[in-house]
Design a protein around this nucleic acid. Structure first.
Lengths: 348, 348
DNA sequence: CTGAAAGCGCTTACAG
DNA sequence: CTGAAAGCGCTTACAG
């Protein structure tokens, strides 16, 4: 039913070998140009589409990559990683077999079986947030790149956001906006980003000559618990707030009303995540440092493919070397001005 | 390098035919039980994993399904469709080849080529929001199910939310909470959901004996434009608000502060979408009707697979017949009480 | 109960 | 410049 090499060969009156040579671009100097043209034309006319299974079987190379994520493709951020990876894959003629484990080892095992069955050439292992992430042992010996996480043993290449740079950047923006008594709204969760952003933040503060006071407040993700402490903290003479993420920034917005502090006037606020929905909803617009999810996906996939092909990354390609931790922003702090970039951490 | 049927056969001392029979479950009464046991054991010991490419080539059936979406897998809601589809696929031994078109015809064409190359058995075509959606012509003759959209020509099976039921449900909840002067905050976008939810809403209102007044206000998605009209509207004697979606609900929350109306006290609010992030951020917790994304994905994928297998849907399976347009909810209107369900619209 | 053989659709070394 | 042939790893009708 589907048209095959054989069909095209019969139509033109040549052998399948010749058709194959022409259609895989191995014909220059090896097939008469007129014949090649005929073949290409017939293939197009007949709607020939090479069978990737047969090709994969023969070549022991499928050009399929397994994209494994915990619960990532579910959230908006994870979607961006997937998109970036997909764009990179497309560019090199690869396709992604996506799979979600829901952080369930049984589900993961099932999916790893499936991916192995389809003989994917390599794996992208994506995490829903930056953390040390041990690869399932079955993947340890296979071509794999970790995205938005790091290998605890450094044995696998990975891309993750430069959390310290994010902290630095946030501090810089608040200082630039004139803030001197800063509230740093953090998370109680012991994740990589908590410590690293705080480090970067203080590193930047120490580097300034201004007299700055910082208070760190950790709040949970539930507004009902966070509200009280936040209102309390905002009632003091705070003039700048660094928010660990947009969720907390949204809480700060709510609390600021109760504390009768006007954001953009009494208070400068900077946050991290650039959540689209909150961008549309918060007033005045939230200044937020974007995490480079798309870029990490793109970089991770390119890294994987080039290593599969035995090449190294093309460092002249700006999409590979220019990995900002943030791009444009509604700049509440200095309206109209975009917030600067900070880079990713690439291993190997 | 990879272990094959041949390897297992040699190890046990039988032919590949016999091994194949045992491993595909076609051995009962056709292979001696002891031999079968030996084979299974050897296969497990050697870590044999059947080659899906060879199988697909031989059987002309790959058990791969193409999951095509516009920009859907990028958002949180789209992720849920994908998850549901993935769970259904896994249950039947299928795997998903996911592809994002970004609403770009060239990208779509490229991906359709790729999916055709891999000889996927069928297609799931998912939309980022409920709309009439014409299938690319190449898919028209292939097994396809549309998810979160409807075929304008009714020629392709589809699942989409029962928007009217959502409108009805919202009205019912507001009435139950005692609201009598209702503000219906809609969207100016001419999409299916706008008209259908409004229809359902008014149908429900007309069915009540209470004396209810409704005012419809359409606002765009930008807080800076919406704020003025919303504050204005809320300053009147409104006692209930139906929000077209959570984004608008968040705007209503903001505006209510400026209008000095207290949500949960002066105002009952019901919304649609159940956006997780906003659930965590809005105070008091937002009552929001969830859209059945996971269920639509699950249903669509099951529908596709059963039609591929020549079966019809198993209507005794509750996960297929019980498709609520909403599930649990923080019920601001009547704290603690979950909001009822409303079903999906399934075609064919 | 079991095996030899054909064939799914490709690619490429080999021969001419 | 071109073709016949082998082989990737399976499954299954056919023969025994």
């Amino acid at each position: 039913m589907r048209v095959t090499l054989r069909d095209v060969a019969d139509d033109v009156g040549v052998s399948v070998a010749t058709v194959s040579r022409v259609l895989t671009g191995k014909s220059s100097g090896r097939v008469r140009p007129e014949v090649a043209a005929d073949i290409r034309q017939a293939a197009a006319r007949m709607g020939y589409r090479s069978n990737a299974l047969a090709r994969g079987l023969r070549l022991q190379e499928t050009r399929i990559l397994g994209f494994i994520s915990d619960v990532i493709a579910t959230g908006a951020r994870g979607g961006q990683i997937l998109l970036g990876a997909q764009d990179a894959a497309r560019r090199y003629g690869y396709t992604l077999l996506t799979v979600n484990t829901g952080d369930d080892p049984d589900v993961e095992a099932h999916h790893l079986d499936a991916l192995a069955s389809y003989r994917v050439d390599g794996y992208l292992y994506a995490s829903m947030f930056n953390r040390p992430l041990a690869l399932p042992s079955r993947l340890e010996t296979l071509p794999t790149v970790i995205v938005d996480a790091t290998s605890p043993t450094q044995s696998t290449p990975s891309v993750s956001p430069d959390e310290k740079a994010i902290g630095r950047l946030g501090a810089r923006e608040l200082l630039r906006a004139g803030a001197r008594r800063i509230l740093y709204v953090s998370t109680p969760a012991p994740i990589v980003a908590r410590a690293a952003r705080l480090d970067g933040f203080f590193a930047e503060i120490r580097g300034t000559t201004a007299d700055v006071e910082v208070r760190v407040l950790e709040i949970a993700e539930s507004i009902s618990h966070a509200r009280g402490p936040l209102v309390e903290a905002l009632k003091s003479d705070v003039d700048g707030v660094f928010c660990f993420n947009d969720l907390r920034a949204a809480m700060v917005y709510q609390a600021s009303t109760a504390a009768e502090r006007v954001i953009g006037h009494d208070l400068a606020v900077i946050s991290v995540d650039r959540t689209e929905m909150l961008q549309q909803v918060l007033y005045p617009n939230l200044s937020s440092i974007a995490l480079p999810h798309y870029q990490m996906g793109y970089w991770g996939c390119t890294k994987l493919i080039t290593s599969l092909l035995g090449n190294s990354l093309d460092l002249d390609d700006p999409s590979l070397t220019d990995l900002p931790a943030c791009a444009l922003s509604h700049a509440l702090l200095a309206p109209g001005e975009p917030v600067d970039g900070a880079s990713c951490i690439l291993t190997k």
